[in-house]
Structure formats: C-alpha cells, structure tokens
Design a protein around this nucleic acid. Sequence first.
DNA 1: CTCTGTGCAAACACTTTGCAGCTAA
DNA 2: TTAGCTGCAAAGTGTTTGCACAGAG
Lengths: 150, 150
Amino acid sequence: MESRVEEKLNEFHRRCKSNGLKITPQRIAVYKALIESFDHPTAEEIFKQVRKEMSTISLDTVNRTLQTLIRIGAAFQVEGSGQPRRYDGGLEEHQHFRCIQCGAVIDFHYEPFDNILVPEHLAGQFTILRKSVYFEGICNQCAGHKQIIN
Amino acid sequence: MESRVEEKLNEFHRRCKSNGLKITPQRIAVYKALIESFDHPTAEEIFKQVRKEMSTISLDTVNRTLQTLIRIGAAFQVEGSGQPRRYDGGLEEHQHFRCIQCGAVIDFHYEPFDNILVPEHLAGQFTILRKSVYFEGICNQCAGHKQIIN
DNA sequence: CTCTGTGCAAACACTTTGCAGCTAA
DNA sequence: TTAGCTGCAAAGTGTTTGCACAGAG
C-alpha cells in the first residue's frame, strides 16, 4: 500500500534519468501529489497540495512539470480537458476521435458502441446522462506520411 | 440531402418556441453553421463562419447562443472540452466519469471496458493512442441540489 | 562548473459579465 | 410596447513565455 507509492517513485526516478532530466525536489513533489490524489487534480489543485510542504513552489513550475511528466509518459491528461470547448449539433448517433496534435474532433460510428451498458455498481452512485467511447490519437493529416497501426 | 438541414431548422424553430425563446437571425445562423459543419467547431470557428454572411455578429453572441442551444438540447458539448486540464497518474487501468456540474473526474473500473476493439475502418484513418469509455452525468454530491431536465 | 530547472511577471487565449441600445413578438 | 437579445468593452480564469538566478549533476 505504502510501497506502491515507493515503487512508483523509483520508477519515476529511473524514467527521469533515462530521459536526461534532473531529479529536483519540485518534480518529486508534483509527481507524488499526483499519484497520491484520489481524483484527477487540476494544476491548481496540485499546486495547493504541494505548497503545504514546499511553500516556495510556483504554479508555473507545477504546470511545466506536468507537461514534462506527460512527455516522459509518467502522467496522462484526462480526455479532452484543457482544450477550447467544442460543440456538436447532435445529428446522428456517433462516437468521437480527437487528434491530440491539431485538436480536431472527428466523428465515427461503430454500431456496437451505441449501447454501452452502465455497470451496475455505477448506476447507484451517479446519474449518468451520457455514455461514450472516446478515442485519442493522431489524424492522418498530422501524421504526414508516417502510418502506425495500433 | 438538403431537406435534412431544413428539417433540423424546423425542429429548432419549434424547440425555441416551446422554450420561450425568440427566433433571431443570429440564433438561426449559429445553429445552421453548427449542423452544417462536418467536424466539431469551437465558438471561434463558428464565429468566423457566420461572419461571412452576417458581418456584425459578435463572438459573445456566438458563445451565448451555443450555451442556449445546449440548454434547450439543440446542441451538445464534446466530452470534457472547455474544462481546465486534469491529470492522471496512470496508476491502474480505469475509465472516467465526469460530473458536469462540479467538474470532478472520478475513476471507475469495469473490466469489459479495458479492451475495447478499434473498428477496422478506423485503424487505417488514425493512429489511435488511447481508447476509453467516458461517462458524464451528475455525481451524488451535486445531485442533492439541482436536477437537470431534458 | 555547466546547463537545466525554477520563480516571477507579463502576455496570451478563451470565456463570462455588466450595461445600454435594439428588435422579435 | 416590452421583455428578451445583441454588441461592446472590461474583467475573470487558466496557460504560456522570456528572463535572470539557483541548484543538480
């Protein structure tokens, strides 16, 4: 339980080294705050958390560190958050693919995704208004000639 | 093909009336631009589009109109867009539920969702880096206060 | 010692708000 | 006529950038 975090921190240490990044107290603190938070914090929330222990840290550093963590694969960004709002005329049943490079959201439709079942244990906890399958990746325009099939 | 838009506009007309909203040229123009756009435009993109025909419209009106459309159910907001960025330490395989009222993102895990298949026709079009099931709704904390009626 | 990382402040992007005049009903 | 809508401008929130100093390696 406690060792889980230890383990993660060690892995993080290795990951920084292999990416040529320095291990700074700020980076460790931000990473620790992130993996210890039970929900999905904003930069502001992490900033407040870290500042309890390290009163001199700045919000910019938190923002920059989070970007760095994403770049080395130590953190992820929750789907679509932090992008300008995008709208949907609701013409047809469909799902969304978002290009993480240009930000475009492109529809696709795959019938089996139209009726996703809500797991029973969630039905009691939340009022679910919308269920969707959401893919992220690189669109062909951005990919240029490179084509990677996953 | 052309009548599809006509039909939608009529329905929109009805929907405005039944919600006690006035039918203004701006509203029609914004709605039309939205349903005619093939991807998922931002307010700015709709603004540019509408301005070609109606040079006096303001970006605020577009923003406000889009909110109105959402309120009466004539448009939707693409999952999670327009929220401050949220981060994820990537500890375990999981899916996300987002409360549209307080913005919290809460994890849940339902094994059948762990390995969603990418439909074949997409594999050629995009490089898919992330596949997820995403639910939106009202969390229990927020449910106490208000209830959204559609 | 060197060069990356940090803190600060200013700039930037997107959205929201207050207000006065305009217009659909 | 009049409540609701629009355009404008200013303010608010979240993120990014430029720079000089500090600290990890």
